[in-house]
Design a protein around this nucleic acid. Structure first.
Length: 768
DNA sequence: GATTAGTCCATTTTT
DNA sequence: TGGACTAATC
């Protein structure tokens, strides 16, 4: 116990040892948030206040959940079994598996990932002859998910115009279709869970009584439904229920675009009458200048719960800022700096290069490749998302639940087995007519198509029969062969990697079976009933099915169902990183939660960061600023920022002003690096002639005149920074006309784009 | 039924 | 600019 609390600072200690009450922990970046969370759980158990089964810890990512479990098992002498640690979706899945009957789901219900969901919506639109110009599948998907994230069913959504009314109608159809197929999307997992618990009082009270302590990580990222679910579990406003311990940082809320509501933090504080608001402001990560920059920057946001990070480390190095002439040159500079960092002993993996949008990585990647520096880009294709893996999964899905139409359509003719469009259309007609799944509709299709379809059904049935008594890995092995996938990819030019990925699935299954505690001999098909002898999983109270506190996952679902859930809920790692020690490239979003010795924040230009679309959204720039705050606080010792005069975007040259965020940093913490001596017309770059003709639409002769004029005389040139008395600083984007008629189009950033007469407007050159 | 040319589009992302 | 997706062709 002593060493458990050892080395905690006073705030951390206070948070860890709070009494069983609602608490909000405002945990700044690098303040030991995860440590507090895990130590509290360990302390609660060690001090005998609660048994592991009384703990629920919720995270957003599997990575965070895994991390928590790892740390916990290192801290605790006993097993963490009985504790519920997982993502919102993972825990919801578990609950729904246990109470599938009460939730009105088939035992083998399957989880649609976003890809499946979109294709399902596309099918729905087609089947109902909906104009997909007017109702793009993506919009409908957004509409449905948005409604579900707010806890609303179709009949609860208020529609204000005909378009919305139609969307609501389609939402309803979509839900019906999901129910028919026995599939649920991500948001549905949570919504079902919420509805199940709200409507079923004994069940709700059982869980409320069980979970004495509910701990939530990254609380600022919760959406409305997640918060409602937590309130329900914590028995807010009811007799039962445990304490909600929420940890989060409103300054790091960067997921509003996917429904996260920072307002949940203050709502929680208010609704639970939180008396214990603890701020963790001691930062153990960054040096002083970096932290000062972060603090000052974020102070420009108005709606904050208020928090200021401090460090015991010294000021350290200043934040270095570099103005490049172009995106290419920016990349070049990054490489030079990274090289010198490495010469000083930095490992490549200690250096991160961050950008606002993925498109920016290409130029940097090119330069790194040319320089022969190993690098890794975060956020590639995940294992279970790869086409070939999804195909194999689809076969397994059909074996476990043949009514999953998405799975059916994915592989009914892959590898090709002579089932064409006409046959599929006939099948869809039949399925529509009888209101059944495609699989079930097969007998209703006659003729040649019907024959080949029956063949497919026999294939699935055969695979099911053949693997009935086998373990999950053996089953996967058989499916890979029987489906013809391996054979198919053997005949493909680029098939070797795909085959390797498929083979990898057997290993994934083996690992899964071991980690999740499925007895190695347990046949993959057989569900809970078959295993009931191994321990009563489900108990009954007042005639209601409730989960035994210690029921392992293996008693509530079959290995196959569990594996399929796992494939949907945990997409797996992105590309196996070949070069271990590599520079880390990623978006600022994906850098959240990580830290590096040295960090480059690139593309700090108006329009890019803050992104131009953010100015159109409510509090959009504040969110961009939080994003910048996240970026800054990733750095331990060295922080670099860069922006460029010229950037290629969507095949067009853009001239952006430097980001407003530079004005929000403390000057004394910064070091502006003088750019290398360079003319604006260095040979590598496009000439003004190109630029002018590219942007202007003025003809080449005129553009050429301008070039000659401006490159010799005191005139103005494209890309140049200027200052205007009223509009402030700007960048010349284009010049039209010449002599006294010359007019310049100038991007004044926040003040907007202006066209000014060069002979009239009083412009000053801005020293760069 | 596969290849190919044309079209469209373009923050951020986990589950 | 370049990737992803669709329509037309052999």
């Amino acid at each position: 116990m002593q060493n458990l609390l050892h080395n905690l600072n006073p705030e951390q200690l206070a948070a860890v040892t709070l009494p069983q009450q609602s608490a909000l922990i405002l945990a700044g970046a690098g303040s030991g948030k995860t440590r507090v969370l895990t130590t509290r759980i360990a302390w609660l158990i060690q001090s005998g206040q609660v048994s592991p089964a009384g703990i629920m810890a919720v995270t957003f990512t599997n990575k965070a959940a895994k991390e928590m479990l790892t740390r916990l098992s290192a801290m605790l002498p006993m097993s963490t079994r009985g504790m519920w640690v997982g993502t919102f979706h993972g825990l919801s899945n578990r609950l729904l598996r246990t109470h599938y009957r009460d939730a009105a789901l088939p035992q083998t219900f399957q989880i649609l990932d976003s890809q499946d969901q979109l294709s399902m919506i596309k099918r729905l639109l087609k089947a109902n002859n909906v104009d997909d110009e007017k109702y793009p599948a993506k919009n409908l998907m957004y509409f449905i998910n948005n409604a579900k994230d707010n806890g609303l069913r179709a009949n609860q959504v208020e529609a204000y115009d005909p378009i919305e009314r139609k969307m609501v109608e389609l939402y309803k159809l979509y839900d019906n279709q999901c129910q028919r197929e026995g599939v649920v999307d991500f948001a549905e997992l949570l919504l079902r869970c919420y509805e199940l618990l709200s409507r079923n009082q004994p069940l709700r009270e059982h869980y409320q009584a069980r979970f004495r302590h509910i701990l939530v990580d990254e609380f600022q990222d919760t959406n409305d439904l997640q918060y409602k679910l937590l309130k329900l579990l914590a028995g807010h406003g009811e007799r039962h229920g445990g304490a909600l311990f929420a940890v989060g940082d409103d300054d790091q809320s960067i997921y509003a675009f996917r429904g996260a509501n920072v307002g949940n933090m203050s709502a929680f504080e208010r609704e639970f009458q939180v008396e214990n608001l603890i701020k963790l402001e001691q930062n153990y990560r960054s040096h002083g200048h970096i932290l000062d920059s972060a603090n000052q920057l974020i102070s420009y946001n108005s709606k904050r719960l208020g928090k200021n990070l401090r460090t015991d480390a010294g000021h350290g190095e200043p934040v270095r800022i570099y103005e490049a002439s172009s995106d290419l040159e920016e990349a070049q500079w990054i490489i030079e700096e990274a090289k010198s960092l490495m010469a000083e002993g930095a490992a490549r993996s200690d250096i991160a290069i961050l950008y606002r949008s993925n498109a920016q990585s290409r130029v940097i990647e090119h330069a790194l490749f040319a320089a022969g520096l190993p690098y890794t880009v975060y956020g590639g294709q995940r294992y279970f998302q790869r086409a070939e893996v999804k195909h194999a999964i689809a076969y397994l899905q059909l074996m476990d639940n043949p009514h999953n139409d998405s799975a059916f359509l994915r592989v009914v003719n892959f590898p090709t087995r002579g089932i064409g469009m006409r046959t599929i259309e006939a099948l869809q007609m039949a399925a529509e007519q009888y209101g059944i799944s495609l699989y079930a509709a097969v007998p209703y299709v006659a003729g040649k198509g019907g024959t080949s379809l029956s063949g497919f059904v026999r294939l699935i049935e055969g695979a099911r029969f053949e693997t009935q008594q086998l373990s999950l890995p053996e089953m996967v092995r058989i499916v890979l062969d029987v489906s013809g996938l391996i054979t198919y990819y053997k005949g493909e030019k680029e098939g070797a990697d795909r085959i390797e990925n498929l083979e990898q699935m057997v290993n994934a299954a083996t690992q899964f079976v071991q980690e999740e505690g499925f007895g190695q001999a347990a046949p993959a098909h057989l569900g809970p009933q078959a295993q009931a002898s191994s321990g009563e999983a489900v108990i009954y109270q007042d005639g209601i099915e409730v989960l035994d506190a210690d029921a392992p996952l293996s008693t509530v679902m079959s290995p196959l169902s569990a594996f399929l859930s796992h494939a949907s809920l945990e997409a797996g790692d992105a590309q196996a990183q070949a070069g271990q020690d590599a520079l880390q490239l990623m978006t600022v979003h994906s850098a959240k939660g990580l830290e590096f010795d040295a960090v480059f924040i690139t593309g700090l230009e108006e329009g890019l960061f803050p992104h131009e679309s953010s100015s159109r959204e409510m509090d959009g720039v504040d969110e961009e600023r939080r994003l910048m705050y996240v970026a800054v606080t990733r750095a331990r010792r060295r922080l670099y920022m860069s922006f460029t005069q010229t950037r290629m975007l969507h095949g067009q040259t853009r001239y952006n002003m430097k980001s407003r965020f530079f004005d929000e940093l403390p000057e004394e913490a910064l070091k502006w690096l003088s750019p290398r001596v360079q003319s604006h017309w260095s040979p590598n770059r496009k000439t003004a002639w190109d630029d002018a003709s590219f942007n202007g639409g003025s003809d080449n002769k005129i553009a050429q005149q301008i070039t000659q004029k401006s490159s010799t005389g005191p005139g103005w040139r494209i890309g140049e920074s200027v200052a205007h008395a009223k509009f402030g600083e700007g960048v010349i984007v284009n010049i039209e006309g010449s002599g006294t008629n010359a007019r310049a189009q100038i991007n004044f950033g926040r003040a907007g784009m202006k066209v000014l007469d060069l002979s009239i407007a009083k412009l000053e050159k801005v020293g760069r």
